[in-house]
């Protein structure tokens, strides 16, 4: 390849990255605007919350000024953006700590559960989708189709409860709510905050087993929802691929069916699938709100719901911001990946 071509590609790459950064920034600003707006329309008066409702008008005004609430809305917004960017999300009234610290402590638990969930979803969903497409109309296809539709119609929190009743109370296959038994708590020094990794690094097998047994059920339930979505999308991508002329071309060449399916039909869609998996991962972070509540899982989702019930707005908005940002980032990143990996889009 000539130097000119390389330089041209690099320039396009830089332009692409710049555009990407712009879109992400705009979306992020949108998210901030929404949380800012929500924070302002709360019927609870933030000043009253600080000074109490028996304060005199003068005290009230002073507090209002001190909190910067007398400034124009736009100025308040910019100072809010500044606060967020410098990591100042205010205090949580329920934990009494800075919201940022809380989020840092709770996030690894959510990440752990969602990650194991997506791994389950991909490991099962992709082969299921491929099978359904290659045997269109067979019973396997029907089962996968029904599973997919169930993924859109079963409430996650309900499935969590039923799962607890069956697998924990009934069969005793898994541990109950919570992240780890009290007995094992504090045995392992938190390094990453992800118990599976921390316990492995410490060589504590017992702790690892206990944590895994707590994790299995909630992660599998999340995995079920991502499986449903991934299998459905894989199936529809594959059906589209299998009707392509170049798949017939491969068959004309005498290529074995397995290779036709995986190398010729599946390979081109793996990039689309990355986008789907990214979306699914992002939605698991979101879905963890319900699952964490059911399983008393000390992650961001539960932090958010507890804060919601206590009208702890700083904590609510902080958690919304974090989940929202991760969601946006995953979303956009899978878009970019698509562009980098697909030779057709690289043009």
């Amino acid at each position: 390849m000539s130097a000119g071509v390389v330089a041209g590609q690099a320039a396009r790459g830089v332009a692409g990255i710049a555009r990407f950064a712009l879109v992400v920034a705009a979306t992020f600003l949108g998210l901030l605007a929404i949380t800012f707006f929500i924070g302002r329309v709360v019927p609870i008066d933030p000043v009253l919350a600080v000074v109490g409702d028996r304060a005199t008008a003068a005290v009230y005004e002073a507090a209002r000024e001190r909190m910067g609430l007398d400034r124009p809305l736009l100025v308040q917004f910019f100072s809010y953006v500044g606060d967020v960017l410098t990591g100042n999300l205010g205090q949580s009234i329920s934990t009494g700590r800075a919201v940022v610290d809380d989020l840092g402590r709770f996030f690894p638990a959510t990440l752990e559960m969602a990650t194991v969930g997506i791994l389950i979803g991909v490991a099962l969903g992709v082969p299921m989708g491929v099978t359904a497409a290659t045997r269109q109309g067979s019973w396997a296809d029907q089962v996968i189709r029904v599973l997919g539709l169930l993924g859109y119609s079963v409430p996650a929190f309900w499935l969590g409860l039923v799962g607890l009743a069956v697998f924990y109370a009934g069969l005793g296959w898994v541990a109950g709510p919570g992240r780890i038994d009290i007995f094992y708590e504090g045995l392992v020094e938190p390094v990453t905050g992800v118990y599976l990794i921390d316990s492995l690094m410490a060589g504590e097998w017992e702790v690892f087993r206990n944590a895994a047994s707590h994790l299995l059920l909630p992660a599998s339930i999340l995995g079920f929802f991502s499986l449903a979505y991934i299998a459905r999308m894989t199936r529809s991508f594959m059906l589209d691929q299998l009707s392509q002329e170049y798949v017939t071309t491969a068959r004309v060449k005498g290529v074995p069916e397995r290779r036709v399916i995986w190398r010729h039909a599946f390979y081109p869609i793996r990039i689309q699938l990355i986008t789907v998996i990214g979306l699914s991962y992002a939605s698991l972070l979101e879905g963890s709100v319900m699952i964490e509540t059911v399983f008393s899982w000390p992650g961001i989702g539960r932090y958010l719901t507890v804060a919601l019930l206590n009208a702890d707005m700083n904590a609510v908005l902080g958690a919304t911001l974090v989940i929202g940002s991760v969601f946006i980032l995953i979303n956009k990143a899978s878009d970019v990946l698509y562009r980098i990996l697909d030779p057709r889009a690289r043009r």
């Binding site: 392509q244 002329e245 170049y246 017939t248 071309t249 491969a250 004309v252 060449k253 010729h264 390979y267 081109p268 697909d342 030779p343 057709r344």
Partner: peptide, 16 residues
């Protein structure tokens, strides 16, 4: 036995 297909735009695998 082999076959030349109609339209190279569609009958060649786009990512190989």
């Amino acid at each position: 036995i082999s076959m030349v297909m109609q339209d190279p735009k569609f009958s060649l695998n786009p990512v190989m």
